[in-house]
Design a protein around this nucleic acid. Structure first.
Lengths: 215, 215
DNA sequence: GGCAAACTTGCAACGGACGTAATTATAGCC
DNA sequence: GGCTATAATTACGTCCGTTGCAAGTTTGCC
């Protein structure tokens, strides 16, 4: 997926901004992995990147933003899967297929983040809380997409519940991938295990939502 | 529910500790309601309660602990409902009944917290994140209870998924009560509305888990 | 070449979290 | 009933994330 950059003239200023941002992000990730998230200070990152502390907090308003990338992509992933579902495909079927694809591709957005990254998150209450918030945002986006797909009011209890149930399955599977990653399993083996478990999990929900959100 | 106090001799010291704790908590709640959670500093609370700053953070390690009470009770509520379910009653039925009871009693643990309290939480990212963490803990406790009830391994994907689905319904309904509270509806009206919506939400899950966790 | 806008920088302040040592008051024991 | 060990409270101080502000520097445009 190339960067769209809508009318973003690649002037010298934009180029240097992107370089500076990447420079800070790279040093931050390296330090977080090496010595943990909480143990790394913004001052250290700024010193490593040879920029001012203020520049770091200017590009990344909160410290968590330095560690968790692709937040927006994660938050809209389920809603996008529903919006882009095939003709006659239910929301559940679309989300099942989307997860299977993500597992096959070992997509980081599905939870394939590497052992060191998973450990960094697990060891940091701040990052764990931030991840919970992202799961929450993802559910809300999904609820909006489901409301649009079914023509129901966004506050409708059935819409809200369906979004909660569907995102719960994805969240449980995400957490399972993280757990297996932390346990040291290689991605290939995790993908194999999770594929079978995902079938069980989605099958459990099938009787409840088999035709929900079908065109 | 009286305080068990297992062999807790009600010495003068324990009494004064409880008084001090209550004094701090009362002043904190009052200030949070009056001027918001983030806008209130621990120093202000300490000054209002006429104690040292350190005494506040000694009784309440984190600032959130000053605002959110009964955290442990909330976290174990779903697990307790499953553990105490009747003979032959499914986990879903037990949780449906527990929620109906909580709504009838307008239990704060179910979300009946009053408009000012709901606003305090909604206006504070810190408290919202803390509440998400509590929902997460509640799901994990439920998963353990379900594993024990079904004899399955706690890491079993069916157990994890069932816990995720069941707690998702409770979480959606909790959030709905908060939303209605923020909108200014009186508790009686909310209880009436939610009772009907809860029936819809649990009915949605019924085909999936009607017999799960039955003795 | 010069001007306006933007980015970067350094400094400062605030607030929450944590640690430590000193003071005070209680509870158990003789 | 007095003494001592224990535990809470207090008053410091430090660290770190976050925010605001003014000055300096670079970029893009005229």
């Amino acid at each position: 997926m190339a960067i769209p950059t809508p009318a973003a003239t690649t002037g010298l200023r934009e180029i240097k901004k992107q370089e500076t941002r990447q420079l800070i992000s790279d040093h931050a990730t390296r330090l977080f992995i090496a010595q943990g998230f909480e143990q790394t200070t913004i001052a250290e990152i700024a010193a490593a990147a040879r920029v001012a502390k203020k520049t770091v907090t200017n590009y990344f308003p909160r410290k968590e933003d330095l560690a968790l990338d692709h937040q927006e992509q994660f938050a809209v992933s389920l809603a996008a899967a529903v919006t882009a579902r095939r003709q006659g495909e239910s929301a559940l079927a679309a989300l099942r297929r989307a997860f299977a694809d993500a597992v096959a591709a070992q997509d980081p957005v599905a939870g394939f983040s590497g052992q060191q990254f998973a450990r960094m998150i697990a060891d940091s209450p701040t990052l764990s809380a931030c991840l919970r918030g992202l799961h929450d945002q993802r559910e809300h986006h999904l609820a909006r997409a489901l409301a649009e797909a079914t023509g129901a009011h966004p506050d409708d209890i059935t819409v809200q519940t369906a979004a909660g149930l569907l995102s719960a399955v994805h969240r449980v599977l995400f957490h399972r991938i993280q757990t297996l990653t932390l346990a040291g399993h290689p991605n290939d083996q995790i993908a194999h295990t999770i594929a079978a478990e995902a079938a069980e999990a989605f099958n459990l929900l099938e009787p409840a939502l088999s035709s929900y959100g079908t065109d």
